[in-house]
Amino acid sequence: MQGINPHSENSSLVNGSKGNVENKRSDKKSIALSVEHVSFAYDAALVLKDINLTIQEGEFIAVLGPSGCGKTSLLRLLAGLEKPVSGKLLHQGNPITGPNIERGVVFQDYSLFPWLNLQDNMEIAINKARKGLARAERNQIAEEYLNLVGLQGMAFKHPYEISGGMRQRAAIARSLALGSPVLLMDEPFGALDPVNRVRLQDLLLQLCRSTTTSRTIVFVTHDVEEALYLGDRVIVLGTTPGRVIAEIKVPFDGQRQRYDLFHSIEFRKLAEQISALYHDDIERQLEAGFVVSGEGELI
């Protein structure tokens, strides 16, 4: 898994057929990640309560929830950056004890080191994935991955010199270069403008379809449409404390043409159902005695 070849990725990017993808997705694969009765707390505040989740290899999971529902905490637990209060997290059957390059992470806007240019940022990951490469080889691989995400000729730019969209492209390229079979993405497009967000969603789908290695992705978002557009399965989290309130298998397999999909009745219905789940949860909170105050109003 570590020795993925960008050449084959490039070529399959061009030839990538949907037939392959559908086969890949319908195959019964082994379990990549499992979350068993996991609870998580910051100090005294319970953030996640009794989360159970099984993620198949090659699956694209969208974790959807309002802010403060603990979806980022769930991702950090999966990455090994946090430890659960109780319960178990497993990656291919082995307990997750700390961060590991087997699980790459793309953060919202800070995956790159600001003091390194894109090439050097990439080379750290390339060095980790494949030790002992000559400098020229590393440079070439870095360039290929940057090309793959549409950052031709940007290798010597520093993160502060490029836009947020470009930074996220580079962050994705770095995760790909790391060769992690599991990719954890924490609202990676959350800070982007709508146009860049759409572009990067499409780029991500394209990369998922084209790569020959099956990559498991956990994608955290608060955007219902984004979750439905990208995910094979959508996990909806409720708030205080965070818990799974629904798991939805997304029926639009493989055939994801943005415009058609977004305007199809099925898509809109599903999006509305999920939004309704959100609202039910919020109403339940209100009934339980939570006070919502008006803007600028003191409680």
Binding site: A79, L81, P99, N100, I101
Partner: peptide, 27 residues
């Protein structure tokens, strides 16, 4: 924390973390 997270994800050892992350961050 974001640099520490990144170092963890990239599998940095202690010395590498000091040299490649703590030193530039403290510069």
């Amino acid at each position: 924390l974001r640099y520490r997270d990144n170092a963890g994800i990239l599998g940095f050892g202690r010395f590498e973390y000091m040299r490649r992350v703590v030193f530039p961050a403290a510069l």
